[in-house]
Simulated assay, not measured.
Amino acid sequence: LHPNYLSKIFKKEVGKSVSQYIQEQRIEEAKKLLQLSNYTISEISTLLNFHDQSYFTTTFKKILGVTPKQYRNTQ
């Protein structure tokens, strides 16, 4: 399959782009790690392959409306 065709079909079926879906799945995993582990936010961002902690925090806040630290403190 051509990547553009696959992306189009994915968006039609799932309602979001492949990259958006992957990003949301990474944030879901981050939520679990924040709740269930003692990893630092920096360690979690590295584990989930974000290129830096700032980008991880920005992405997390964009999707959930709170920072990872705020999320962890409310759990």
Rank of each mutant, 00 (worst) to 15 (best):
I44G: 01
L48W: 05
S7N: 15
Y55W: 13
K32I: 15
A30C: 07
L6P: 00
A30R: 05
T67W: 11
K61P: 04
I41H: 09
S37W: 11
E43T: 08
K31F: 05
E43M: 10
Q70S: 13
L47I: 07
L48I: 02
N38G: 14
F10T: 02
K31H: 05
N73K: 14
D52E: 14
K16Y: 11
P68N: 12
S42Q: 13
T40R: 12
T46G: 00
G15D: 08
E24V: 00
Y55V: 11
L48F: 04
Y39H: 13
I41M: 05
A30E: 01
T57S: 15
P68G: 08
K31D: 06
K11V: 00
Q75R: 04
K62E: 13
L36N: 12
S54F: 10
L1W: 03
Q35W: 07
K69C: 05
I22Y: 10
H2K: 10
L1D: 03
N38L: 10
L33F: 14
I22P: 00
Y21H: 14
V66N: 09
K11E: 15
Q20W: 01
L34C: 01
H51L: 11
K16I: 15
Y55D: 13
P3T: 04
I41R: 01
L34F: 06
T57F: 01
S7Y: 02
T59N: 04
S45L: 02
K61H: 13
K32H: 11
T59F: 06
I44M: 02
K69D: 14
E13S: 10
E28H: 02
Q23P: 00
I41Q: 07
K8H: 09
Q35T: 09
T46W: 03
L47V: 01
T40K: 13
Y55I: 12
L34W: 06
R26I: 00
Q35L: 14
S54W: 11
Q20V: 08
L6F: 15
F10R: 02
E43N: 06
K32L: 14
V66E: 15
K16P: 00
K16D: 07
